[in-house]
Amino acid sequence: MRPVGTGLGTSTEERTGETTDLAPPYNVFLWNDPVTPMVVVTRALKRIFCYDHDRAELLMITAHLEGKVVVWTGERERAQRYCVELGLSGLQSTVGRAS
């Protein structure tokens, strides 16, 4: 599997201004898994991140095709909480410092 350079997460950061100069931004990576139905993944992304359907579906498909995708970028504690929420939806995710 390889990282995905879609910039999808970065655009969220730019739009919402989640980060500050003091804290480096963190990415939330969603990993593909071969068993969770696509509708479940899409719904989780809509519910957790308040993304519209098209955006959530694009992220889901990108993870499916590329192995993982950045679904959100911002401050660390919030990234960890999002990661927990994804896990509670049965999805594998991790947090990593954005480069």
């Binding site: 927990v84 990593g96 410092r97």
Partner: peptide
Amino acid sequence: GRIDEGADRDDPLATLARQVA
């Protein structure tokens, strides 16, 4: 599983939230 592999430990609040949920 470890949420943040680059950190010494995960945020305790995130871990607790997961247990409670």
